[in-house]
Write a protein that binds this DNA or RNA. Structure first.
Length: 300
DNA sequence: CAAAATTCCTGACTGC
DNA sequence: TGCAGTCAGGAATTTT
């Protein structure tokens, strides 16, 4: 489900409600949720007694800073939710795989029907060993982004975060011009740019007036500037509206609130409806087992 | 039976 | 031949 705006929405609620809280117990009822660890007990032991110091985001990943310097990393996959209990008696939803209790305040549940999501406590690299940071990331990451990647080696492969790393259009140009593949593949490749998935890729490319199958290196300077602006604005706007919740209501924030940005989708899931710009029907094609929505008149 | 917002892995192929 | 990059396909799973 969640792409950058949804993860950012979750992040802000977690930061507000759980920073400063001390973890009392961690209960794993489906080991698949913590599959990076050899056994669930290592996950539990790394967390019990720890106090949450911060909640950050990189791409679609959540990064929870702990008082011992370690980080708990979360990815929601397709259907993962982090939900704050509504009270001490609030029944656990179906597909609850991990429960965190705190010395004070309501518990936090990790719920994930499709089990593509995961949680893990990052294992710091041995002394003196530097994580491998991708050349795309290295190209433009400044200060904070680099620090995060060094602290969490498992996420070192991620490319530029379009909001956190604040990259300028000229840096985006360098990245785009070095690629010979289709634009949609470029902006959804987490190793190049992290956080954009199927929904926002279609929305960004529509806003920029660029077809999903345009070869990246063929983009003009004007087109790259439009892409840069579209990326920044669409993601910021989607965050403002607390992300997108589709008809299946899979995405909700930790309080159970759905997002509202789906009301502003201009092409995604709108096959046959008139293009907001030219009224031509929105097209849908299947690329790599995924739906792509676009306007054949407005996107070139 | 198809489709659904995710990442990861493998095998085939290409170009240097 | 080796290596890196690309890309299609499939797997992981449940619900609608």
């Amino acid at each position: 489900m969640p792409e950058l705006p949804e993860v950012e929405t979750v992040r802000s609620v977690l930061a507000r409600d759980f920073v400063g809280k001390k973890i009392k117990t961690v209960t794993v009822t489906n080991g698949r949720a913590v599959r990076r660890h050899k056994a669930p007990k290592y996950f539990r032991e790394a967390l019990e007694g720890r106090t949450i110091k911060s909640v950050h985001r990189l791409g679609k990943y959540l990064i929870v800073g702990l008082d011992d310097g370690n980080k708990m990393v979360g990815h929601l996959g397709m259907s993962g939710q982090l939900l704050r209990a509504k009270g001490p008696k609030d029944p656990k939803p179906k597909h609850t795989h991990v429960v965190f209790t705190f010395t004070q305040g309501p518990e936090l549940r990790f719920v994930d029907p499709r089990t593509f999501g995961e949680l893990f406590v990052s294992q710091p690299l041995p002394e003196g060993q530097a994580p491998e940071i991708s050349k795309f990331a290295r190209l433009s990451i400044g200060g904070d982004g680099l620090a995060t990647r060094v602290a969490v080696p498992e996420l070192a492969h991620l490319g530029i975060d379009p909001l956190e790393d604040q990259i300028g259009w000229d840096r985006l140009a360098a990245i785009v011009r070095s690629r010979t593949t289709a634009m949609k593949a470029v902006i959804t490749d987490q190793d190049i740019i992290c956080g954009i998935g199927n929904i926002y890729a279609d929305e960004i490319l529509f806003e920029a007036g660029i077809r999903y199958d345009r070869v990246a290196e063929s983009l003009s300077t004007i087109e790259i500037r439009r892409l840069h602006r579209a990326m920044t604005e669409i993601l910021a706007d989607a965050i403002k509206h607390r992300g997108s919740t589709l008809d299946d209501e899979q995405f909700v924030d930790p309080e159970g609130n759905p997002g509202e940005y789906q009301q502003y989708h201009r092409v995604y899931n709108r096959e046959g409806l008139p293009c907001p710009q030219c009224r031509a029907p929105i097209q849908r094609v299947s690329v790599r087992q995924r739906s792509t929505f676009f306007c054949e008149k407005c996107q070139n």
